[in-house]
């Protein structure tokens, strides 16, 4: 291990067994080169505190399991390098979601809202068996696909949901990720769904509850612009 340096991190802890109090706990992490916040949390777990709880999977910015609030701002713990963060580095669980333990939040409310927009593609009845049949022929760079292609890479990490002030004060607001998905699937030229999905996103808690604050755009770890999707839905840019 190359010679490291010590980086202080302060973790917002919550132990359901200890009366539900949320306390800050500080650790001095032996930080090697290129270590991320996620690496630092593992260091704590493995060397200092076997009770620390957090969520992880891919460690490469692809799965969205480790979104949390780092130095006051949402991000993926695996994608934020200690070297580029002001110390002490503060780490808190996502906002507007129930905390299970420490940095582990219950994402069910987030996914319930995601589900509420009917996020699934509905295909035409094309044959999948006929080798001659070709899925939709859509030229590369087709204008209809251009925005969808940019917005479709959402990894449903919950960062935008946590950063959105409307989510925190309007409980029925569907939030940026769900509305972004509603746009990308509705604007998919191949999708065969009717107008129901659009009715849902323009009803209470839908796109008109958004105040265009734009935190969702700032914090998105994969460069999606949920606000643009919301604006396009508001303008009725998707026709059925």
């Amino acid at each position: 291990m190359p010679a490291g340096r010590t980086v202080s991190i302060r973790v917002r802890r919550f132990d359901p067994a200890a009366g539900g109090r949320r306390l800050w706990q500080a650790y001095d992490v032996d930080a090697g080169p290129m270590m991320s916040v996620l690496d630092a949390l593992f260091w704590v777990l493995e060397n200092e505190d076997p009770t620390l709880a957090f969520r992880y999977s891919c460690r490469a910015g692809m799965c969205g399991s480790c979104a949390m609030v780092i130095n006051g701002r949402e991000g993926l713990a695996c994608a934020r390098r200690l070297e580029r963060l002001r110390a002490p580095v503060t780490v808190e669980p996502l906002r507007s979601l129930p905390v299970i333990k420490d940095l582990l939040v219950d994402l069910r409310p987030f996914f319930e809202k995601y589900r509420a927009v009917d996020p699934f593609y509905i295909g035409q009845a094309a044959s999948v068996f006929d080798p001659a049949s070709e899925p939709a022929v859509l030229p590369r760079g087709d204008a209809a696909r251009e925005i969808v292609d940019r917005q479709i890479d959402c990894i449903a990490c919950g960062a935008c949901y946590s950063a959105c002030p409307i989510v925190s004060i309007v409980p029925e607001f569907l939030g940026p990720a769900a509305l972004n998905r509603a746009y990308t699937v509705a604007a998919d030229a191949r999708d065969a769904a009717g107008v129901e999905r659009l009715h849902r996103v323009t009803a209470d808690g839908g796109v008109f509850a958004c105040h265009s604050v734009g935190n969702c755009v700032t914090v998105c770890p994969v460069g999606v612009d949920p606000l643009l999707s919301i604006q396009l839905l508001r303008k009725g840019a998707v026709h059925r």
Binding site: F120, Y121, G123, Q124, A126, S127, V128, S133, E134, P135, A136, V137, L138, P139, R140, D142, R145, V148, D149, I152, V185, D188, R190, D191
Partner: peptide, 20 residues
């Protein structure tokens, strides 16, 4: 592949002529 595109909604990159 056809199933993923036509039933599941996956969209793969296209050639200039619009095919996969």
């Amino acid at each position: 592949i056809r199933r993923l595109e036509t039933r599941i909604g996956v969209f793969f990159d296209r050639r200039p002529d619009g095919r996969i």
